[in-house]
């Protein structure tokens, strides 16, 4: 079994960033997620929150809580790094890969084309395939959620086939409705809020990615997987009414 390694760096004077690798990959992502879950299981005063991303896990802390007044020579940063080292060593020593959690798959209904995805035909003609082919390729892929960011609940998805990759629009739209599914370069994503944006829009989901009244307040979580499936405009409208 390959030994998991990590490196810690300060992120300003009140956060630590733990890096588990330099390249995007499922193994690195799994380690980030495993570290996150393990650290969360043992809540500690003085840790404000954790923010995972592709290869890193950031730990925001309360400087004062980690200042040791009996040993002022140990700065808060070193104190929290010692704690994190100890915890991570225990986590990654004790368990093997077999304990890796199966990522949860969220199925997302998408009404492709038409007013819901005004750029679908453009994406198709860019690759000289049919709109149906684009839909099939887009919905026939299992995507990994590497991180949430940019907007509340916005997933950074990995795994989109290059056969439907397209450049951003030259002129961004002033308002893209929430739920719009788009492609920009080799990325696909879903807009959680009405925002301006330059992605090529191929469809729209009736699901709400950001729902502040619920817990968790977002539909998707990093480390999970997403699969899109096509629905008709009638189904979309019916879904919205529910």
């Amino acid at each position: 079994m390959k030994q998991t390694r990590w490196q810690m760096d300060p992120l300003g004077d009140a956060a630590v960033i733990i890096e588990f690798g330099h390249e995007i990959g499922l193994d690195v992502l799994a380690n980030v997620q495993r570290a996150l879950r393990a650290l969360e299981q043992e809540p500690v005063t003085g840790i404000i929150e954790y923010v995972p991303s592709y290869t890193t896990l950031a730990v925001y802390y309360d400087m004062e809580a980690w200042a040791d007044h009996r040993q002022p020579s140990i700065p808060p940063y070193e104190a929290i790094c010692m704690y994190l080292e100890r915890r991570l060593s225990a986590v990654f020593q004790s368990s093997s890969d077999s304990q890796r959690l199966e990522p949860s798959i969220t199925r997302i209904p998408v009404c492709y084309g038409g007013e819901y995805g005004p750029d679908l035909d453009e994406v198709a003609s860019y690759h000289r395939i049919s709109a149906a082919d684009v839909i099939q390729i887009h919905s026939g892929t299992l995507y990994t959620i590497y991180a949430l960011g940019f907007a509340p609940g916005f997933p950074y998805l990995g795994g989109m086939p290059e056969s439907i990759a397209v450049p951003r629009r030259d002129t961004p739209r002033l308002r893209i409705p929430a739920g719009s599914v788009g492609i920009a370069g080799k990325q696909t994503g879903i807009y959680p809020l009405d925002t301006p944006g330059g992605w090529q829009l191929i469809g729209r989901t009736p699901l709400r990615l950001f729902r502040p009244e619920q817990h968790p307040p977002v539909l998707l979580e990093s480390g999970g997987q997403v699969q899109f499936y096509p629905i008709t405009p009638a189904e979309y409208e019916q879904w919205r009414e529910q």
Partner: peptide
């Protein structure tokens, strides 16, 4: 660089070489 967490006061430098200081309403990554 891969997107990663930022914090209040993080100074980022995009390709144009002009720094941006991230403030209270910053994006998370």
């Amino acid at each position: 660089y891969l997107s990663e967490a930022v914090t209040h006061g993080t100074i980022q430098v995009p390709v144009d070489g002009q720094p941006i200081i991230l403030m209270a309403d910053r994006q998370t990554l």
